[in-house]
Design a protein around this nucleic acid. Structure first.
Length: 774
DNA sequence: CAGTGAGCGAGCTTCCGCTTGACTT
């Protein structure tokens, strides 16, 4: 007979805790939520106080029946899911799904996985907090209602298979709006003047840079100013020294880890989470989905010891960080190494780099401030109205900077405060050179995955467990694309005063280059405008924050959850019905002009399959002709000329091997068609001007690849082939693919071996979850 | 994978938040 069954959310956690608790305790994991709303009829009975219809999630059925058996045998079941809204609901669902009597169960919580914390929790059990569960139900039902009423509305009014939701739609809005800001941004330029000085009549050769206190609007002004400085006298007017300090950043949360890994290691948000998961499962770091800045007392002590041993006592300054984030639930610790004295860990290079980042950030957070001395020197010219200013910074004590400097998203490379020579008031200076260079103002930066996460967190939208999935959803729906774009060269003007002469020189700089930035698509823009027009409340950046306040009131027992939902749903549902009935199709249609040959109208708009051009009117007798836009083309920038090119396909460009060769554009981009076979045209060729020779080359290249694909064929049975694919060798029998078991050399397979392989169901490829219909 | 955009009107898509594997042609 089982004495104690403890259920936590994560299996890695279960393993650790089992060690602390000894053999009277069996620790299992629920793998997160085990129940969810049914997908049928909203999963909510709207007529009867929004009663939720829960069911055991399909992928948890087996697990639940196992847990149920264990729970039945156990004397006592300890529900140890996380101490937050979702965790409370998980415990409540477990109670229901496992059919545990409440008297036989105890609810316990802990914020850190230390023996002390767990034993303390066991000694202080409580019962399930139904108010907190209700707050979760309100959250869950609200998200379901919003998502499952708005999405079908989009299917009807914009395009099938789209989606909308409290979190994703606002995420897309941020990107769409940022793009609009960028489009409306007018870049202006000004001239910034930097002078290099040196102490006159001194043996010290060290030069330093100072900036003139005025920027010039035009090249003429800049040039004129430099000319006035020929032969001018410079001296130090004043020197101000001020002590300053820098403090370390707090330990990592999910969001800050994603940002730093993006800035410093170039990891995507999903990649960071995948690698962190590996480190967590290997027991190297604490839980990676957290919004807490807390470190356990044990961890702080270990960090202190590590700092003392490696850097010395003067580098220690233990600190407790408190979150400013109102939506934080702090069910876990901050992300930190499990063992502070382990300076490196991880199997792959990626794991090692992420681990090192976490180690450094955590250690630095418990180190002393860096002490600096900031110096500001004002320099006057006897021929200029304003002064020149030089700023210097000297590090007096490095403190935490010894191990960690936080990254920055700032793209404007400012002149770094360097080290200044020892200067005093009235010192006479010698001018080495003076440069006035044009600088353009920069548009607000596009979001990266990580900076979008930061913004969402700032707005209190989404949770640590959903940042990465949200980013992937909005890309999967085609609202947003992550792209790297090359910049353009831009000419700048620059004037140099040197040896009593002012010369102009041209400089070019690269501008507008973007690396892995998020751009809205036509569909993203259209859906955002649609939702913003009809559902401004839901698209409001404060919507989540406002409903969170109500969830808190529910959690405190001051409000009934279904009352809150009822109040929200009334107006919302009415608006949905009204839009369904009264709003027309939302296609973003735009008249581009007329076809010069036929005079027919040419439109660009979003159709069932995405952006397209249309020649002729829908209500005319003749059916209009359609053509889809190509990758990289956009409704917003498409010209009449572009549209006419799209209508020129399919185009016959000649004959090869006695059969016609045509060029066309399909769902997957431009292609060459020959003898009923398709050959896609790569990006480096422009389909509109593709010659027959180029087409033949494409055909022959593909044939060559096809030939190399075959590893083995059998004369006895032509249907059986061993082929080389993207993921290595595989077997095909009569159009059905099979995996070849690991450790088998594909070149040695006999026909009999192949039949054997095809009989084992283990070798069947997994069915794709969604198959596109014709 | 491969040219769709329609007049039958099937049957499908979809939310957020909590967890890991499965496994790609």
């Amino acid at each position: 007979m089982l004495k104690n069954l403890v259920i936590v959310e994560s299996p890695a956690k279960a393993k650790t805790i089992e060690k602390f608790l000894g053999k009277d305790y069996t620790v299992r994991s629920s793998f997160g939520h085990v129940m969810d709303l049914s997908k049928k009829n909203m999963g909510v009975d709207i007529e009867h106080d929004f009663e939720p219809k829960y069911e055991i999630s399909a992928d948890k059925k087996k697990l639940v029946s196992e847990l149920k058996k264990l729970a039945k045998d156990a004397e006592l079941v300890w529900l140890a899911s996380d101490e937050d809204r979702e965790g409370e609901a998980i415990s409540w669902h477990l109670l229901n799904a496992l059919k545990i009597k409440e008297a036989k169960s105890k609810r316990i919580v802990f914020h850190e996985i230390t023996k002390q914390a767990i034993l303390h929790a066991i000694e202080n059990p409580r019962s399930i907090d139904k108010n907190l569960v209700d707050a979760q139900q309100a959250r869950r039902v609200l998200d379901r209602l919003v998502g499952f009423e708005l999405s079908p509305l989009l299917w009807r009014k914009v395009k099938p298979s789209l989606s909308a939701g409290r979190v994703q739609s606002v995420a897309v809005r941020l990107i769409v709006e940022r793009e609009e800001e960028i489009k409306n941004f007018k870049s202006t330029s000004s001239f910034r003047t930097l002078a290099d000085f040196r102490l006159k009549d001194s043996t010290a050769k060290q030069s330093f840079t100072a900036e003139y206190g005025l920027k010039f609007k035009t090249a003429e002004e800049a040039e004129k100013f430099l000319k006035t400085q020929i032969g001018a006298n410079y001296k130090v007017n004043s020197v101000t020294r001020k002590p300053a300090k820098k403090s370390p950043a707090a330990p990592f949360t999910t969001s800050t880890l994603q940002q730093e890994a993006s800035r410093k290691l170039g990891f995507s948000v999903a990649n960071t989470m995948r690698i962190a998961q590996r480190l967590y499962e290997s027991g190297l770091i604490t839980y990676m989905r957290t919004d807490s800045l807390n470190l356990s007392e044990v961890a702080i002590q270990a960090a202190k010891e590590e700092i003392e041993n490696t850097f010395g006592k003067e580098y220690i300054k233990t600190r407790r960080y408190t979150t400013k984030n109102k939506s934080a639930q702090e069910a876990h610790e901050a992300i930190r190494p499990t063992y502070m004295n382990r300076t490196g860990a991880g199997e792959t290079r990626e794991e090692q780099r992420l681990y090192e980042l976490i180690w450094k950030r955590t250690i630095a957070s418990q180190m002393s401030d860096a002490k600096l001395e900031k110096t500001v020197v004002e320099i006057s010219s006897d021929k200029a109205e304003k002064n020149f200013i030089a700023q210097g910074e000297v590090l007096k004590f490095d403190g935490f900077l010894k191990v960690y400097i936080e990254g920055s998203d700032d793209e404007n490379g400012e002149v770094k405060d360097g080290i200044l020579p020892d200067l005093h008031t009235s010192d006479i200076l010698e001018l080495l050179q003076m440069v006035s260079k044009e600088r353009f103002t920069k548009h607000p930066p596009r979001y990266t995955e990580a900076s979008l996460v930061r913004k969402l967190e700032e707005l209190g939208i989404g949770r640590p467990s959903t940042y990465a999935p949200t980013i992937s959803t909005i890309q999967k729906r085609g609202y947003v694309v992550k792209e790297t774009r090359e910049g353009e060269k831009r000419n700048l003007r620059r004037f140099i005063l040197k040896e009593n002469e002012v010369k102009e020189s041209k400089v070019t700089e690269n501008t507008g280059a973007e690396k892995a930035k998020l751009f809205p698509t036509d569909i993203g823009v259209l859906v955002t405008h649609f939702l913003f027009e009809y559902f401004p409340d839901i698209m409001d950046y404060n919507f989540t924050a406002n409903v969170e306040k109500e969830f808190d009131e529910i959690a405190e027992g001051r409000k009934a959850w279904n009352e809150m939902i009822k109040r929200f749903y009334g107006g919302f549902h009415e608006k949905v019905e009204d839009t369904l009935k009264n709003a027309g199709k939302y296609s973003g249609e735009k008249l581009l002009g007329q076809d010069p040959k036929t005079g027919k109208n040419i439109y660009v708009k979003i159709g069932r399959f995405g952006p397209m051009v249309q020649m002729g009117d829908t209500d005319s007798e003749e059916k209009p002709v359609f053509a889809g836009l190509q990758k990289g083309q956009s409704i917003e920038t498409l010209t009449l000329e572009d549209a006419l090119k799209l209508f020129s396909f399919p185009k016959n460009i000649g004959e090869y091997e006695g059969e016609p060769v045509t060029v066309a554009i399909g769902r997957f981009g431009p292609y060459v068609k020959h003898k009923n076979l398709f050959y896609s045209i790569k990006k480096d060729k422009i389909p509109a001007t593709l010659t027959l020779d180029e087409a033949i080359q494409i055909i022959e290249e593909k044939r060559e690849v096809e030939r190399n694909k075959i590893i083995k064929v059998f004369a006895e049975d032509e249907k059986v082939k061993v082929l080389n694919g993207r993921y290595g060798a595989y077997l095909v029998i009569d159009k059905q693919n099979y995996k070849i078991p690991k450790g088998t050399d594909p070149t040695t397979l006999t026909l009999e071996d192949c039949y054997e392989i095809s009989k084992d169901p283990k070798n069947m490829p997994k069915k794709r979850s969604f198959k596109r219909k014709k």
